[in-house]
């Protein structure tokens, strides 16, 4: 359930994949919705969904960051080179940063006129208007390009994981899909879990 020095706990694993799936879905939805025709069935629904899910992702990411700080971070695999460690760490930090920046700029688009953001018609996240001139355009441009950057970087992150799995044949990806290593580590793991 919890992280150890060797393994990611199931909660961390769950957060990781839920965030990944949500981000990919939001990107696809965002990419799709901006070119919808006016009379399209999804013309109004798609942006509403995009904003609602985006807000839920924000909550998820806050919980995830808090959880991450309360947990042990599994150590780097000994097979990882120091360059790989540095690159991995940097990529992770930039991914987190991009996710938050994209959510903030998204918020700044929709709230530029003081309107709040309705989340599934259940409640409204309040807006605070514009802080800069033409905020919705500036925030929109940043939102768009950071989203492309995020998807690019996440792809790199995924390719790196696959490289570790299939070429290096190490446990990098196994750790994130919850596959435990069968060897002495298990005993070590048990000790740390208790």
């Amino acid at each position: 359930m919890y992280n150890t020095r060797i393994h990611y706990g199931y909660i961390s694993i769950f957060f990781h994949w839920l965030a990944a799936a949500t981000i990919i879905a939001l990107f696809a939805l965002g990419y799709y919705m901006v070119d919808l025709t006016y009379y399209h069935q999804w013309y109004k629904t798609a942006p509403e969904l995009h904003k609602s899910i985006g807000f839920l992702l924000f909550i998820l990411m806050i919980v995830r960051v808090v959880w991450r700080h309360k947990q042990l971070t599994p150590e780097h695999l000994t097979s990882h080179s120091s360059l790989e460690r540095k690159m991995g760490k940097l990529t992770h930090s930039v991914l987190y940063l991009l996710i938050f920046l994209i959510m903030i700029t998204g918020y700044l688009i929709s709230t530029a006129d003081d309107r709040g953001i309705e989340v599934f018609e259940l409640f409204t996240v309040p807006g605070f208007g514009s802080f800069i001139e033409n905020q919705e355009d500036v925030a929109g441009l940043i939102h768009q390009w950071l989203a492309y950057t995020l998807i690019l970087l996440a792809s790199l992150h995924a390719i790196a994981a696959l490289k570790h799995h299939f070429i290096d044949k190490d446990n990098t990806l196994n750790r994130m899909i919850g596959r435990r290593q069968k060897n002495l580590n298990q005993a070590k793991d048990k000790m740390e879990n208790t």
Partner: peptide, 16 residues
């Protein structure tokens, strides 16, 4: 033209 204002930021962004 960038000063278009329909009292709705999301729509104004679209109009621009």
């Amino acid at each position: 033209t960038s000063s278009v204002n329909s009292n709705h930021a999301e729509r104004d962004k679209h109009l621009r």
